[in-house]
């Protein structure tokens, strides 16, 4: 796994939302809630991203319960590692921004 990849905002929030298992609509709601309504994932974007993330094994679908057609997903150990790397990267971004612009803030 590459150590220095930057996740897109879409990927970051999907992974973050899946720290607890969610279905598609749950991920949209969780993302909107976490970002204070700034990010509203659209269905087509989310569907494509979920498939890609499953292929990469950063998330995994949970077995579908009988009588429910809604598929739930959860973060994998690998996904959690990616998320932690990203958090470190973001912390560095913020720290550098604050250091350089300290006079402006």
């Amino acid at each position: 796994m590459q150590e220095n990849i930057a996740l897109t905002e879409t990927t970051y929030y999907i992974l973050l939302s899946l720290y607890t298992p969610q279905h598609g609509y749950g991920i949209m709601q969780r993302t909107e809630e976490l970002s204070d309504g700034r990010i509203r994932l659209a269905a087509g974007t989310l569907y494509g991203a979920l498939n890609t993330l499953c292929d990469k094994k950063w998330i995994t679908p949970l077995p579908v319960e009988t009588g429910s057609r809604k598929k739930e997903y959860k973060l994998t150990q690998q996904g959690l590692t990616v998320l932690k790397h990203e958090l470190k990267r973001l912390q560095q971004l913020v720290m550098n921004g604050e250091t350089v612009l300290k006079e402006e803030l």
Binding site: T8, T10, I39, R40, A42, A49
Partner: peptide, 11 residues
């Protein structure tokens, strides 16, 4: 709420 099929440039 707003309805879009896509919400980012990549998609």
């Amino acid at each position: 709420g707003n309805f879009n099929i896509f919400s980012d440039i990549d998609s």
